[in-house]
């Protein structure tokens, strides 16, 4: 029945993925630090970040370290990370309405994010306190867990919370059949099941400068162990590419803030292009 080439058609024909990327390229990624820090809430403690990976957009806000609300929550030797991941109802590109409060995938993403952050933040510096991370997925075109992690990471940097490294995340997949290639940073189409089979999608988060893997997850069935190695390898390469983008954004933001302090610069919002008065 010749079913070996279907959604990977273009890949087999021209080494391009359906959206025109090469197999090893991540989507266009943009990072904005501190989009919500200057709110009028008066709550100076914290930071925020907006991360756009292709059409997937995640916004993260961080509060803390602050005192725990209940004493029973606090830990004597380190801070607790309180994470929530939610999505706006209009997030999926096909506008399928899911309840953001009960979506078990989002709750799971919250747990995964929490564990990744716990491995990254230097929690021992803030005993008996709490760091609150709120992520909202504003648009979802695949890879929302990775976008959420990257957003949280950027927001933590914006909040100035000490971390071991810039946590960066990227997913990788595997196009089987005749093409036999690994794909980096899957979009929604690539991670949705095809022909009744779950597509291979392996989200992965790492501390790129240390080379430590803090998260990886795969639900689909892979043909063999060697392929798992290859996919993981690809995901880590993707994480490094993401790290470059994050690092550039952080440097830009820092430069702008330095300029602001010296009274010479202005904050250029790289997103909207609007200038904020110093």
């Amino acid at each position: 029945m010749g079913s070996s080439i279907r959604r990977t058609d273009l890949l087999a024909l021209s080494n391009l993925r359906n959206d025109g990327r090469k197999p090893g390229e991540i989507r266009r990624m943009r990072v904005q630090l501190g989009p919500a820090s200057n709110t009028a809430s008066g709550d100076a403690v914290g930071g925020s970040a907006l991360v756009e990976m292709g059409l997937t957009v995640a916004m993260a806000t961080v509060r803390g370290p602050v005192a725990c609300l209940r004493r029973s929550d606090e830990l004597p030797d380190r801070a607790v990370v309180d994470v929530s991941v939610r999505a706006v109802p209009f997030a999926p590109t096909d506008r399928r309405v899911t309840n953001p409060n009960t979506d078990r995938r989002l709750i799971e993403a919250g747990h995964l994010l929490k564990r990744a952050l716990e491995a990254t933040i230097l929690l021992r510096l803030y005993p008996k306190s709490r760091i609150e991370v709120r992520v909202v997925v504003l648009a979802d075109d695949g890879g929302r867990l990775c976008a959420a992690i990257n957003a949280a990471s950027a927001a933590l940097i914006d909040a100035g919370i000490p971390m071991r490294d810039v946590l960066s995340a990227c997913s990788a997949g595997y196009a089987g059949g005749t093409t036999d290639t690994t794909l980096v940073d899957l979009n929604r189409r690539e991670e949705s099941p095809q022909q009744g089979k779950n597509a291979v999608c392996l989200p992965c988060a790492m501390l790129p400068q240390r080379g430590t893997l803090v998260l990886s997850q795969c639900e689909a069935r892979l043909p063999d162990v060697r392929t798992l190695d290859r996919v993981l390898e690809a995901a880590m390469a993707g994480c490094r590419a993401v790290f470059d983008v994050l690092q550039a954004a952080v440097r830009e933001r820092a430069a702008a803030l330095m300029g602001l302090r010296e009274g010479t610069g202005t904050i250029v919002d790289s997103f909207a292009g609007a200038k904020l008065a110093a």
Binding site: S14, L16, D19, G20, R27, L55, D141, R189
Partner: peptide, 16 residues
């Protein structure tokens, strides 16, 4: 409405 990305590139030469 379904929105998707399309990347345009200049390294494709004259096809495959």
């Amino acid at each position: 409405k379904s929105v998707s990305e399309r990347y345009l590139r200049d390294d494709l030469g004259l096809g495959c």
